Amino acid sequence: MALWAQLGQAAQDAALKWREPAVRAVSRLIPADVLWFVDTKGPVFALTFDDGPSPDTTPGLLEVLARHRAKATFFLVGERVQAHPELVAAITAGGHEIANHLMRDERSAFVPADQFRRDLARVTELLTPYGPVTWFRPGSGVFTPRMLRTAADQHLRAVLGTLVAGNQGGPGDARIAADLTVGVRPGSIVVLHEGSRKRNGVIATTDELLGTLAGRGLSAVTVKELAALDCGS
């Protein structure tokens, strides 16, 4: 039984190891101006968080990031920005980047075109007093050409990622960091989710992830910092 368990875990690790390069390969075939990863040999990756800010998760994440001397990009939801402006200020005070994740935690592809345009502009307006806004990430990571054109008109570029995970408050959360570290490599963009009490396990996930990757010589940076290292830029 132990042997079969070891073989099963080895197969799972192999699949996780190839997940990231598979996403890179597929993204190259999609004719759209979306940042999925960066071609770089520098020992860095971009760490990003969706769906904040929230008093249940954001302060803990900022403490962990400070302790590891890591930087991140927070893709923030407009309604939560309005509810917790002090947390947005804390994010930027910590040297982190803020980005647009639309007005509500919903699937952006289902939002009517006029509303999407208004919501995108409104969230940028809410965030700009705290710092420059360059990036947006559609809700649920699904985009359309129309959405990308609207974003470009507002001088925003879409950012997705090569490795995505979400804490849900269940036993599976304990393996998130280990599963991610198998695939992270220079230029990866990692997507984690915060924004609610159910997701407060993201704090421990981030702590474990950063500690393990530091042991491999990899540091977390903002999307802006990673994009500046793109060999094609």
Rank of each mutant, 00 (worst) to 15 (best):
L7R: 15
A10N: 12
A11R: 15
D13N: 15
A14M: 15
A14L: 14
L16M: 10
K17M: 15
A22F: 13
I30H: 14
P31I: 03
A32V: 11
L35W: 12
L35M: 15
L35Q: 13
T40F: 02
K41N: 15
G42W: 07
L47E: 02
T48M: 02
T48R: 01
T58W: 05
L61Q: 00
L61A: 02
L65Q: 02
L65A: 07
A66H: 14
V77D: 02
V77S: 02
E79S: 14
E79R: 12
E79A: 11
V81Q: 01
E86C: 10
L87C: 05
A89P: 08
E97V: 04
I98H: 01
A99F: 04
N100R: 03
H101S: 05
M103E: 06
M103I: 08
D105T: 10
R107Y: 13
P112K: 08
A113G: 11
D114K: 15
Q115R: 14
F116H: 13
R117M: 08
A121K: 12
V123A: 07
L126M: 11
P132C: 08
W135N: 05
S140G: 11
F143K: 04
T144R: 07
T144H: 03
T144A: 06
M147A: 11
T150R: 09
T150D: 12
Q154R: 09
V159E: 03
L160D: 01
T162K: 00
V164G: 11
G169E: 04
A174P: 14
R175P: 08
R175L: 11
D179T: 07
V182R: 04
G183C: 06
G183K: 03
R185V: 06
P186M: 03
L192P: 04
A204T: 15
T205D: 06
T205H: 05
E208S: 10
L209D: 02
V221H: 01
T222D: 02
E225I: 00
E225A: 05
A227L: 11
S233A: 14
S233C: 13
